[in-house]
Design a protein around this nucleic acid. Structure first.
Lengths: 160, 160
DNA sequence: TTCATATATTAGCCTTAGGTAATTCTTTTG
DNA sequence: CAAAAGAATTACCTAAGGCTAATATATGAA
C-alpha cells in the first residue's frame, strides 16, 4: 500500500501518484479502452472512427495514439490502422472489465440516466482495493437477489 | 438531464461539461472543501496551512485561493487570512457532506486502506443522480444492519 | 527599531489534453 | 490517371494545476 494514500492530496495529487505507477493517464485509458472495444470486433480501428467514438477531434486522437504506440500498447504507423499489441490487448481487456464491473454495480444501486458518465468518471481513479470490494459486493447482491428487490421497495417507500 | 451524459466522452470531456455548469474544477473543490473543514473550527485559515493540509506548494494555494475569491467564495486579501463568504460556506458544506456520504458508503462495502483516496477521486465527478442512489442505498444498509453482517460472512467464505 | 525568520506572492516553467487552421497524404471517382 | 474528397498530420493556441526560484511582506526577538 502506498502510504501517500493515507494522506490528503488534491485530486490532481492522487492522479500524479497513480500515474507514476501505471504510466497511463485517465485519457489514455479512455482511448485504450475504446480501441479495445472496437478492435475486438473489427481487428483494427482508424483515427477518424476513434475521434467519433470518443467525441474529440482527430488531432487529439493522433497524438494520444502515438503515445500509446510509444508505450508499446498499440501498433501504429502514420496514416495507417490502429491495432493492439499483445500487451495493449491485455490491458484493454482489464480496462473494459473494470468498466463493466463498475457500471453493473452502479446500475444495481439505481443509477440510470448518468450511468455512462458516472462509470467513466469513477473507473480511472478507483483503487484496486475498492474495485475488489465492489466486485465482492456485486457478487453478493447477485447471489442474494432478494436484497435488491427489498431495496426497490425501500426506495419507493421513501419516495425516490 | 444533459443529453451529453448519454454519449461517450473521455474523462476530460465529461469534466469540461461539468465545469461549464458549476464553475468549479475538481481542484478548486478540494481547496474549498479543505478551507471549509478548517474554518469550521478556527474561523479562518492561512495559505501555508492549506499548503500543508493539501500537500501542495504555497504558490499553488495562492493562485487557487485568488480564483476562489474571484468567484466570490472566499474573502481574501494579499498576505491576509482566508475566510469563507456565505456562498462559499454553503458550497463547502455541500462538498463536505458529499465527501462524508461517499466515504461512509465505501467503508460499508469494505474499502479500508485506500478509503481517503477513493473517496477523493470519486467525489468530484459523481452525478447528483448517483449521489442520490448512494445516499438511498446507504440509508437502506443502515436500516437493515443484518445485510452488512451477512456480507461480511460472505466475504470471508470467499476468502477475501 | 532593526534584523532574522517565517510566510506569501510573482514570474515563469512543465505537462496534459483539449481545440483550430493549414497542410499533406490516400483513396475514390470521373 | 488526374482531380476531388476524405482522412491524418503538423503547428500552434488555450487552460488548469502542479513546480521552483526570486522577491516581497509580516512578525517576533534582541
Amino acid at each position: 500500500m502506498d502510504k501517500r494514500d493515507r494522506q490528503f492530496h488534491t485530486y490532481r495529487g492522487y492522479q500524479k501518484i497513480k500515474q507514476e505507477k501505471t504510466r497511463l493517464t485517465p485519457s489514455m485509458e479512455d482511448y485504450l479502452e475504446m480501441i479495445y472495444r472496437h478492435c475486438k470486433n473489427e481487428g483494427y480501428v482508424r483515427i477518424f472512427k476513434l475521434s467519433e467514438l470518443l467525441n474529440v477531434q482527430a488531432p487529439s486522437v493522433t497524438r494520444t495514439v502515438q503515445r500509446l504506440a510509444d508505450l508499446g500498447l498499440v501498433d501504429y504507423e502514420k496514416y495507417g490502422l490502429v491495432k493492439l499489441t499483445q500487451e495493449g490487448e491485455k490491458i484493454g481487456q482489464v480496462l473494459l472489465e473494470r468498466h463493466i464491473l463498475i457500471e453493473s454495480f452502479l446500475s444495481k444501486i439505481g443509477v440510470r440516466d448518468t450511468l455512462l458518465r458516472d462509470t467513466e468518471m469513477i473507473e480511472h481513479n478507483i483503487s484496486v482495493e475498492a474495485l475488489h470490494s465492489i466486485e465482492c459486493f456485486n457478487s453478493y447482491l447477485e447471489d442474494n437477489p432478494h436484497i435488491l428487490k427489498e431495496f426497490e421497495e425501500y426506495k419507493k417507500s421513501r419516495g425516490y
